[in-house]
Amino acid sequence: MNTAREDILDAVRRARGREPLDARTCATLDARISTPVRHLRPTFDEDLTARFIRKLASRSGTVARVAGRAQIPAAVETFRSTHGLARCAAVGAGLKDLAWPADWTIHHDRAGIEETLSVTPAFAAIAETGTLMLLASPESPTTHNFVPDNQVVVLETARILRHFEDAWAALRERTDGMPRAVNLVSGPSRTADIEQTIQLGAHGPRRLHVVLVD
């Protein structure tokens, strides 16, 4: 008996009225994978940073700009106190070296069910739609992006890229291959499943705050 795999692939080939593709066609298609076709992209002349902030804000994300890496903890503290959050946070290990307030309880492990705040390093961002690109790694566990009610993402201004395709190119340039998860985040969690009324914080964070490091 054929395996399902063989049956399905055979059926697909029969449907196109042919045998398996010849080596030359395969090589052409493989080249199409290794060198992606450049598709039409939305054009815009807006400054990348301005657009990123505007687009993210249009989906209820907030942004604070700081002059340097050293100012990150203070910016996060401002966010924390503004929203009256407890002094505890899951901080991505990539941000371990920063001088976090001494009275905070912080950890670098995965987020637990009671987690209220996380601080996450972004790999890049996409100006086109105001989207953050977060990569799963020991320094940035995926649970930090979805479990807490509040997420602060640290992004370097220079990492704001124009289009999604630029972000894919940056991803391909990494030496350690595809991360387990690539999370493209364009705002806090939302739902419109009850009477098409938009409500933030459906399952993921209710608040998404970006600390933009110039």
């Binding site: 989906r59 492990d109 995965r110 987020a111 739609t129 989207t131 799963a136 790694s137 020991p138 566990p141 995926t142 649970t143 595809m178 991360p179 387990r180 998860a181 690539v182 999370n183 493209l184 985040v185 364009s186 705002g187 806090p188 969690s189 939302r190 993921g204």
Partner: peptide
């Protein structure tokens, strides 16, 4: 764009925390 677009590639890596 929707809020979340997620690419999942394989299971957790050896050093991953989740």
């Amino acid at each position: 764009t929707e809020t979340y677009t997620t690419l999942s590639t394989g299971p957790k890596r050896a050093a991953d925390l989740d």
